[in-house]
Amino acid sequence: MQETGKIKLGISIGDLNGIGCEVVLKTFEDSRMLDFCTPVIFASNKTISHQKTDLGFEINYNGIHEASKAIDGKINVVNVWKETPVINFGEPTPESGKYAIQSLKAAVAALKNDEIDVLVTAPINKNNIQADDFKFPGHTDYLAQELEGESLMFMVADGLRVGLLTDHVAVKDVAASITPQLIRSKITTISNSLKMDFGIRKPKIALLGINPHSGDNGVIGKEDDEVLKPVIKEMSEKGHLVFGPYSADSFFGSDNYKNFDAILAAYHDQGLIPFKTLSFGKGVNFTAGLNKVRTSPDHGTAYEIAGKGKADHSSFKEAVFMAIQIFKNRQEYKELVANPLKKHKLKRQS
């Protein structure tokens, strides 16, 4: 645990035929990263050895059988499997999906048992991970089942933070999925996360409309007037600084997003297209609202460049730093909540 050393940062290796292993190794090829955390990779000695040879890395690591045995100052590899997976860079295979899930399950188990402090997940393929014992569209849904809390997909880069009302939901099902209860839950989750994870005392949150032009007063759809607006009014009366709904087509281009601490988009592409346009390569996917910290890079498996040494590890590195910072922010927040006098003293000093 972190109390007895550096933050133990667990890493699920992702799809072995994608760029996951490459961005992990590139990140920790810089030995200075070991000053910030103790990396614990869930894979196997043979797998990491073959990957680093294929990709041309000169990296030493410490093989262990359980995360609790990780050593500070070293790259630790938990041996999740004994066999040697066949690597076919650029090709999503059932085998690469199987090992991606084995790595993820082992890492989440260690996270739940406090053998690691935070988790950073390398990219998986949503198709080849499907199995009899794993029927989830992605990391977020699985983590929501395994960890306590109300999960929120939260894309973060510098001062830009975009959360989603609905994430992996078909567009045809979006409007029906957005209920007053869901909106209340997501506003509460994003507000709590901004306070606890990012240190923002009075967060301002903007909601984007469900329909084009937020429905144009019911001409293009009634969901914004009948579902979003009443809940925004209700939550505002309860003390939340929440505003909208704003027309999504001009919200980012006009720089209006800079006036808010976070934006809550109605559905996946409405939020992620502008987010990735503004911050690609620097963005981080953070699963807010859970009792444990999980981040990931804002890109996928990138099969087209896998095995070629061309992958940019910037986003994965940002995910590592963000996981560390959020973990520290949560500890500080807990201390302030537990010790109101300290909180009062800090306010007087500021």
Rank of each mutant, 00 (worst) to 15 (best):
K186T: 07
H268I: 11
G239T: 13
H213C: 05
P274T: 08
A157E: 06
V171K: 10
Y257K: 03
G199Q: 06
E226S: 10
F286A: 11
M196Q: 14
H213E: 10
D269A: 08
R294S: 00
E223F: 07
I200E: 06
F286D: 11
K282E: 14
R201Q: 12
R161Q: 04
M153K: 09
E148M: 10
P212Y: 07
G209V: 06
I220E: 04
D225F: 00
Y246F: 15
G283L: 13
S254N: 06
K276R: 13
A288C: 10
D261P: 00
N259Y: 01
Y246G: 05
S191H: 15
D216E: 15
S236K: 14
K258C: 02
K202P: 00
E148K: 12
V169F: 06
K186L: 08
F251S: 05
L228W: 03
V171P: 01
P180I: 12
V227M: 11
Y246N: 05
D249V: 11
I263D: 01
I273R: 12
H213L: 07
Y257R: 01
L152M: 13
D216Y: 02
S193I: 10
L290S: 02
S279M: 12
I220V: 09
F252H: 00
A248H: 02
V219G: 00
N211F: 09
G244T: 10
A265N: 03
F154E: 08
L208T: 05
S250D: 04
E237W: 00
K282H: 15
E223T: 10
D255F: 01
P230E: 14
G159I: 06
D158M: 08
K282T: 09
G239I: 13
V171T: 14
S254D: 09
S236P: 00
V219C: 00
D216V: 02
P245R: 04
K186I: 09
D167H: 14
E148W: 01
D269Q: 11
G239K: 13
P274M: 13
V284D: 13
F252Q: 07
K222R: 13
V171L: 15
E150D: 11
G209C: 04
F154N: 09
S193W: 04
L164C: 12
N285H: 12
L264G: 07
L278Q: 08
H240K: 12
T179F: 05
Y246M: 04
T189P: 02
F252R: 03
Q181W: 00
P245I: 12
F198S: 07
K202V: 10
I220D: 01
L182M: 14
E237V: 03
T166E: 09
K195T: 14
M155I: 11
K172Q: 13
K195E: 12
S214D: 07
S185W: 03
D197E: 14
I210L: 15
F154T: 07
L241K: 10
D173Y: 14
D225Q: 14
V171D: 09
I178A: 04
G149E: 05
F154H: 09
H240P: 00
I183P: 04
D269M: 09
G253S: 14
V242S: 10
L264R: 01
L278W: 04
S151E: 02
D173E: 15
E148L: 10
A288Q: 01
N217I: 01
H168P: 02
L207T: 06
T287H: 03
Y246A: 02
L290R: 02
I183H: 02
S151W: 01
D173F: 08
P245V: 11
D158K: 15
